[in-house]
Computed example of a mutant assay.
Amino acid sequence: MSYFVHISFDIKNAKDSLHGTYVYKLIGKALEKIDYSKVVKGKRKKTETKLTANTFIAEFEKAGTHQTDITKFVTKELRKIFKAHQVEGKYFISTGTQWAWKIGKINKTK
């Protein structure tokens, strides 16, 4: 069974952190090291679309695992990354087995 995991986060007072606002990029690199991506691919895996800032996705293949367990695991990993970079903030994690996604762009209207 495949699980789709979505993470988005924001850091409290990032500019005051040890690395300043560059900490966002460092956390992103840390997430990428553990197989989270800033890019989603369509069904045919030919089209790649970059995600919005501070949004990462991953696909887990864990037979017999409940999505709550995956959410707990992802939370622990994110906490480790925040701790390593000495920051605090908010996060949103969603996990599911059946999903649909859409990426679009809204242009300024006159």
Rank of each mutant, 00 (worst) to 15 (best):
F56C: 08
E88A: 14
E32W: 11
E48C: 01
T65E: 08
K38A: 04
T47K: 13
E59D: 06
A84P: 03
D69K: 04
T71A: 10
R79P: 00
K108Y: 11
I81W: 12
K110V: 03
T68K: 15
T55V: 15
T49Q: 10
K102C: 07
T47L: 14
V87C: 12
K29W: 06
I93P: 08
G28E: 00
I7H: 05
S17F: 01
Q98C: 06
K15S: 15
K108Q: 01
S8H: 00
N13I: 10
W101G: 00
I93N: 14
S94L: 08
V5M: 02
S37C: 12
Y24D: 01
K12M: 11
G20W: 04
S17Q: 13
L18K: 03
E59H: 07
K105P: 00
K105D: 08
V87N: 11
E61G: 02
E77I: 02
V74D: 03
T97S: 14
F60W: 13
H19C: 13
E32L: 05
F60T: 11
G89V: 08
A100R: 07
K90M: 14
K72V: 07
T68P: 00
M1Y: 00
E61L: 07
Y36V: 04
S37M: 08
L51I: 11
K110N: 00
T21R: 11
A14F: 05
W101Q: 00
T97D: 06
Y22Q: 09
G64Q: 07
S2Q: 15
T65R: 07
V23Y: 05
E48T: 10
T95W: 01
Y91K: 06
T65K: 02
S37F: 14
L78D: 06
I34C: 13
H6P: 02
Y24W: 06
T52G: 04
E88K: 13
T109N: 09
T65Y: 07
K72W: 03
V40D: 05
V23H: 09
F92V: 15
K83Y: 15
E61S: 06
K12T: 09
S37E: 14
K29Q: 14
T97I: 02
E59T: 13
F4L: 08
I81R: 15
